[in-house]
Write a protein that binds this DNA or RNA. Structure first.
Lengths: 209, 209, 209, 209
DNA sequence: TATGAATGAGCCTTCATTCAT
DNA sequence: TATGAATGAAGGCTCATTCAT
């Protein structure tokens, strides 16, 4: 299967380049990252990078969007866990909150936001595309779950979109503060504490009347 | 008083340079901002910038920190308002929340975070210095006020630091989402809506038992 | 006759490449012409070009020399016309001059000189090879004819080589000026005018005493 | 006179750059000439070249045009010599022809034509600007002189523009051929021979009836 | 002190050329 | 044999930074 192999090889190489690009961009930022270094990280020669991705700008775009897709997939998988809340709602929410915290405060998600925000002037559209994938989609999925819970009487009646937004805010806000904006890596215990506190406050505010 | 005048003139020039630097850095980001453009914006020649501030890096540091100080001053003034809560606690909190929203989502604060985060690899300490001034200090001041309110029985007993953190999270989280990460400028009404929702949820969770 | 066919196909492909190369070189000059574009113009892939012609330099050489051969053939055919001058020498010379003008000011001959002159430093020999084929050979053939005419008493006694040289100079010099160095394409009428003037002056200078 | 000195220094540097540029372009052609080498030849650093002349293209333009101006000045000075023909017209013409030959076949004039022709596709206007200065202007000045000679009865009645054109053609055409397109440098004697032959033929064709 | 001019270093990009299929 | 993909080398251009005035 000659064609398959070489087509596959080509795809692999492209993805290796994108992965390397994301790594290097995350490490140094857009301007400081050299295409040279990206090529080295991907194990290819510089022109190969250009053969696959035209431009440094294009390379950035695709690397960032590819990473964003991955994060989105993780996020959506987590929100699914609320579909079967089980008897102990608090415990389930705490678990979900913890997992979301792991993803949202994780290195990839953080780098993603950092890169997109930092290059807002050069890539004005990217910031939105990234936020959509890292936050909005998650918020929407969460809103769906909360709406069901509200309907089932396990939460008070409310605007589910707002509730989801606030749930995530209660989670990620303190996360950001506690991790000192990503400077410190949070321990599992700390993350749990933050998640539990978020859930506690959320349940107090949204418990059925 | 020739000396005083020229010392004064010197100081003015330095501040003009710092202000210009912040403007330009905010406009283009660290790497993309040229010392040339900064000098032009400040109305001086390039070497003058170097005479006053040695380095591009140094220039960045000072420009960012100066802006951070300004933001901090604004933030602290606002928190003071909670010292005399008055009879209608909800109304007072809503007012405070709205004002904080204005500052935290304002252009300077946003640029500050954006620049600091974007250059985290080059200036690892800056991110903390900025967060301290834009968020932490505000959070601390707020915690002080909330502690008093709790003691006065107008809020339930709680960890005031956590309460402050969550209050700010409920405010700035949705703010970020609604402004599409600063892409859209929020109207006064939208800002108020966000502030009121934050206060509502906060009060539900922290009302006296 | 498989072998014959494929040998023929091979030759055809080689000539297609050479033709394409000349076209592209003429269009953009040596350095600016990309092997890529030449391959595309020839309808083959880049490595095929290298399979047939080793080098870009080699490609250039062969393309230029092939074109030069074609031009030479045309030129010699024209000079033959002077072998039977007929009764009206002036008319015959005018006809010959006109045809030579057409060729020498034609696109191929012009591109040929332009390319060879422009790459004199890189291909020091080419300029001579080309001039030989586009001018010298013509001049020699012409000298032969003029010698006969002189001997026959229809021109004064003279050095036929010099006479030929001057005949061509009187023709191509004004041609170059009038066409603004090839910038403007000369109309048939203009070309005729130039040819006639050249012949007139030539005959005045070389008429029998 | 501080200002004068530094302004003068700046001008000197600019002209040094232009001269170096012309030298290097003449040596290697446009594409093959590196800005690096030009800077080195001028004794400055690469960015200095860009400070003075923006672009490689711009540098080329100015270098070529500056050289063209110089050539034009030389040419016009020579034509002036025909203003006072003296008793021996042939001798005067021979002298003028010889001097013109020296200039037109000189290195600068040759490089000028070569560069302009070679880069016709990239700088379509340059070829005309150069021809104007190296040939047309000379032709016009010469026509003026020939008109006077014709009027004075020392040449037959004729179109002076055509006569000038043909005079130059008779001179430069053979010059080109004998120097093998600039490959060989002509000796003084050879140049004289060519000039004398041109004048002889010219006088035969244009002698008063 | 403030400035116009000069510099050294570095990066993106392209292209002729060669493998591997 | 013909090709898609990969590479090594090189060049234009920019920019932070420093002299000299």
């Amino acid at each position: 299967m000659v064609t398959a192999t070489s087509a596959r090889g080509r795809i692999d190489k492209r993805q290796a380049i994108l992965a390397a690009a994301f790594t290097v961009f995350a490490r140094h930022g857009y301007d400081q990252a050299g295409v040279q270094e990206i090529a080295a990280e991907a194990g290819v020669a510089k022109p190969t990078v250009y053969n696959h991705l035209a431009d440094k700008a294009n390379l950035f775009r695709h690397a960032v969007l590819a990473a964003a897709e991955e994060v989105m997939a993780e996020n959506l998988a987590i929100a699914e866990r609320l579909r079967e809340p089980g008897g102990d709602l608090r415990a389930t929410l705490e678990d979900v909150a913890y997992r979301m915290a792991r993803v949202c405060a994780g290195e990839r998600a953080r780098a993603l936001r950092s890169l997109a925000h930092g290059q807002a002037s050069r890539f004005p559209d990217l910031i939105d595309l990234v936020r959509e994938r890292t936050s909005d989609r998650l918020s929407e999925a969460l809103a769906d779950r909360l709406a069901r819970l509200s309907l089932a009487g396990r939460l008070r009646r409310c605007d589910p979109a707002l509730a989801a937004e606030q749930f995530l805010a209660l989670l990620t806000g303190p996360l950001e503060a506690r991790s000192r904006s990503g400077t410190r890596t949070l321990s599992t215990a700390d993350t749990r504490t933050v998640a539990d506190a978020a859930v506690d406050t959320f349940l107090r505010a949204y418990r059925p009347d």
